[in-house]
Each structure stands twice: as C-alpha cells, then as structure tokens.
Design a protein around this nucleic acid. Structure first.
Length: 198
DNA sequence: TGCTGGATTCACT
DNA sequence: GTGAATCCAGCAC
C-alpha cells in the first residue's frame, strides 16, 4: 500500500521524519525493483533551519523543495554521492526529510551488483550516499512523484514505538551553527542497518 | 568566467 | 584518526 499524499502534506516535518521510520522505499530502475525499510532519517525545515539548502534562498536546485510534498529531492554531494530527500509540506514551504539508511528487502542481488559486493553485509545501505547507489537513485529522479512508477514509498503497517526511536543531532551540518545541534535525526534503536553513530 | 566548499565514503596510517 | 576523491551550485567579480 503506497503512502497517501496527505502523509506528506502535513506541516510538521519532524513528526513526518519519525513516522517514516519503518516505512518502505521502492525504486524500479530498468525493470529492476529494489526496496528497503527506512531505519534512519533527518528532518530539514526550510523556514527556520540554516542546515536546509532552501533556507533563505531559492535556486534552481532547491526549487523542488518549494513544491507540494510527496516528491523526491535528489542532491549530488561532494560530486560523488546522490542523497535522497522526501519533500514534505504545502507549496512554498521548503521542508524535506533526508533518508540516511534503509534495511534491504527486495532486489538485494541488484543492490549487491550496484555496490560491487559479493555478499550481503551491513554496509550495503548504511548511509545516505551508499543507499542511493544501492537503490540506483540518481539526479534523473529529481522531482519524481513518490507515488509514481520509478520510485515510491509504501506503508507496511510496521509500528515503531517511541521507545525504539533514538533522537540525536544531525551530522555533517556543522556549518549551520546553532541549528546543527537540533535533535532532528531519528534512528531505530538497535537496528544494525543504521549508519554508524557519531 | 572563475573560485570555493559541501546533508559523504573509503582506504590507509 | 586523517585525508583524498570529485563535480557542480552558489556567489563574487
């Protein structure tokens, strides 16, 4: 069951980030379907969060974040890695959720091939850059509708209770000053598929 | 038109 | 623990 459009349109991006834990993300690249359970996310708020690319500026790259929720914002980082974001909230409000780690489910053999691995291990999808490689996500997915055919999210009715959710400061955003310490990073406790804690 | 540095990862010391 | 890889967005000129 794909996530309803309403899920993305709410105005509390932090709450959405929490609820995305346990949801499944799917991609279909050249007929190859791959999927995984989201185990780690980060929230970015365009209105009051300096760590967000769209904070205080609106450019061709960040334009998609101002669109209505339910689309993908793909960003190329360090010239090497693609990062997958879920755009949320209404039009003109640039909120997004970064998917940092997933637990592989379907199409694992395709993911192994894309990553150049022989056997499954915890590094396959532990990190926003490598999970995009595993799922075959590139900038061609920029702006894709998340209920579409090439990339989408599903609700597997998996319930994550508060006790199993860890909150912590976000990583890699030290330039954001005080906003860098906001506890907007969410992980599933004791899940080995999360990227390494810092 | 040119320069700077980043929502990262991996190999190596 | 440290540093290189590597490309383009954003901004200065």
């Amino acid at each position: 069951m794909k996530l309803a459009k309403n899920f993305y349109l709410r105005d509390d991006v932090v709450q959405i980030s929490r609820e995305l834990l346990g949801k499944a993300v799917y991609t279909c690249i050249n007929g190859q379907v791959t999927s995984g359970i989201i185990v780690e996310t980060e929230a970015y708020c365009g209105r009051n969060d300096r760590a967000c690319h769209a904070f205080g500026k609106r450019t061709p790259r960040t334009e998609i974040m101002y669109a209505e929720g339910g689309v993908a914002y793909i960003y190329l980082c360090y010239g090497i890695y693609h990062l997958l974001n879920i755009v949320t909230n209404k039009k003109q409000l640039a909120d997004a959720v970064l998917i940092r780690a997933i637990q592989p489910v379907d199409g694992i053999e395709y993911m192994l091939t894309r990553r150049g691995f022989d056997a499954l291990n915890y590094k396959l999808t532990a990190g926003p850059g490598v999970l995009s490689i595993a799922l075959g996500i590139t900038t061609q997915h920029y702006g894709e509708d998340l209920s579409g055919k090439s990339i989408w999210l599903e609700d597997h009715q998996q319930v994550i209770v508060d006790d199993d959710i860890l909150c912590s400061p976000r990583v890699g955003v030290g330039y954001a000053g005080e906003d860098a310490i906001r506890p907007w990073r969410f992980r599933i406790k004791n899940n080995p598929w999360c990227s390494k804690a810092k």
